[in-house]
């Protein structure tokens, strides 16, 4: 009973991640890749993503401190970051990345800084939510992870 409960809770949590626009279809793709060989595949990927992307974030922060802004460099780093983010289905983060790159293209320094802050906020928020989600998922067990939310 307890287990069912937490499973329902897990599903609801995931659903809210989608409803709030934090995640997109790609996340489900990852979940579907999860199998007996890699029961924690999604979590591993997300962990890897946050480990690797923190380097990019630092890099971006440093580059953003400089004046005038090196838009090319920012765009390149952000492109990479966007690639990673989209791979895990971090929908909101990705959207901010796109916005950021748009500002880079138009040379809009203020826009860049603003969207970067926004992006970081989403990035951190998603991290927290996913951590909670994975924690609950571990408690719940391997079942039902791959089911698509409505």
């Amino acid at each position: 009973m307890d287990r069912n409960n937490s499973r329902r809770q897990l599903a609801a949590m995931k659903q809210s991640l989608f409803d709030q626009g934090h995640l997109d279809e790609q996340f489900i793709q990852l979940e579907e890749l999860q199998d007996d060989a890699n029961p924690n595949f999604v979590e591993e990927i997300v962990t890897l993503y946050y480990r690797d992307s923190s380097r990019l974030i630092t890099n971006l922060e440093q580059t953003l401190e400089r004046n005038p802004l090196d838009f090319n460099k920012l765009d390149t780093i952000m492109h990479q970051f966007k690639g990673s983010s989209s791979s895990i289905g971090a929908k909101k983060v990705k959207a901010e990345c796109t916005l950021f790159r748009e500002y880079c293209r138009t040379g809009h320094a203020e826009g860049c800084r603003k969207s970067f802050q926004q992006m970081k906020k989403e990035y951190v928020a998603l991290k927290k939510k996913l951590e909670n989600y994975f924690q609950l998922a571990r408690q719940t067990g391997p079942l039902d992870r791959a089911c698509r939310p409505k």
Binding site: L30, I45, L48, S53, Q80, G83, S84
Partner: peptide, 14 residues
């Protein structure tokens, strides 16, 4: 990108 690489690897293996 290690994240992409890992995902791709998994997908391809699938």
């Amino acid at each position: 990108d290690p994240t992409c690489l890992m995902i791709l690897e998994k997908m391809l293996r699938t």
